[in-house]
């Protein structure tokens, strides 16, 4: 569904690349997570894939269309939910959806049904300028489904939502995926990625550091972690060690020999911890 080969992008049109030699593929029906901290190059990549940024260097094909020559028809297959809500504040929720559905050449979804789906039933005729941030976000999310997309780009879909609504949104994403929709999920929230994604890519400083399924990553890194609490100079210290990595094994052996151990647990690594382990950076 998505093929990216040797993608580069520079905002200053020089060698200062925001995205460097990025290559990956997303297969049909997959939920692909694009994970990284702010400024890592996630949005730049996604904006190129959706035609919002011009392709400078590399080869990109999305839903069977070459991104070098984007034609409006391509967007009949694509849905895009933005991180920042962007709806017409002077139009009502329903008017917003009614307008956007007319911009596609394919069968579209009923705006009332979509509003109900995202918990905005009863707010159809309210101007979105009077909506809360969360309501606007849900409307932006609903709008991205209006054309029954085959490929769905989701940028931080649960950011700013309360846990109950966020859970509903996750369910909708799962349901859509069950129907065969391919999803490209951009987020810095590892828990959502872990819960939803078939595969994830870790991107940092414009480069992809790793692509694999959360399951494989946990097999590789997660099962072999030990969390230790020990006393050093009267202070309680907590540290996590890999039982696979040689240097970690050695450190653990030294620690057991030299310090008083308070607790010791084998632990399954979270995706966030794996990210830190692999990239050496936090996801903030």
């Amino acid at each position: 569904m998505i093929k990216v080969k040797n993608l580069y992008h520079s905002y200053s049109n020089d060698d200062n690349y925001a995205v460097k030699d990025v290559s990956f593929e997303v297969t049909k029906g997959e939920i692909f997570g694009f994970l990284g901290p702010s400024g890592a190059g996630k949005s730049t990549t996604q904006n190129i894939l959706t035609g919002l940024l011009e392709l400078q260097k590399g080869e990109v094909s999305v839903a069977g269309y070459d991104i070098k020559k984007i034609i409006p028809k391509m967007f009949n297959k694509i849905g895009m939910s933005f991180e920042q809500s962007n709806v017409y504040s002077k139009l009502t929720a329903k008017e917003n959806l009614e307008f956007y559905r007319k911009l596609f050449d394919v069968k579209t979804r009923n705006p009332d049904e979509l509003l109900r789906l995202v918990g905005l039933k009863g707010k159809e005729n309210k101007k979105t300028g009077d909506f809360s941030k969360g309501m606007k976000h849900r409307l932006t999310f609903a709008r991205s489904m209006i054309n029954n997309p085959e490929l769905w780009f989701l940028d931080e879909p649960t950011t700013g939502l309360d846990p109950a609504i966020a859970s509903e949104i996750k369910n909708i994403i799962k349901e859509q995926n069950d129907k065969g929709v391919t999803i490209f999920l951009t987020t810095h929230n590892m828990y959502i990625a872990e819960e939803l994604c078939n595969r994830v890519a870790f991107i940092i400083d414009g480069e992809i550091k790793l692509i694999d399924s959360p399951k494989n990553l946990k097999l590789q890194y997660g099962d072999k972690l030990v969390e230790v609490e020990y006393i050093e100079n009267g202070n309680l210290i907590q540290e996590t060690f890999s039982t696979v990595i040689k240097s970690d094994k050695k450190k653990l052996q030294n620690l057991i020999g030299k310090h008083e151990i308070q607790t010791m647990h084998t632990k399954e690594a979270t995706l966030e911890e794996i990210f830190i382990k692999v990239t050496g950076r936090r996801l903030v």
């Binding site: 028809k73 967007f75 009949n76 933005f82 709806v87 504040s89």
Partner: peptide, 14 residues
């Protein structure tokens, strides 16, 4: 300012 241009840009309209 409202960002609606971006939303328009990802529709099948020119």
């Amino acid at each position: 300012q409202e960002g609606v241009i971006k939303a328009y840009a990802v529709t099948a309209s020119s």
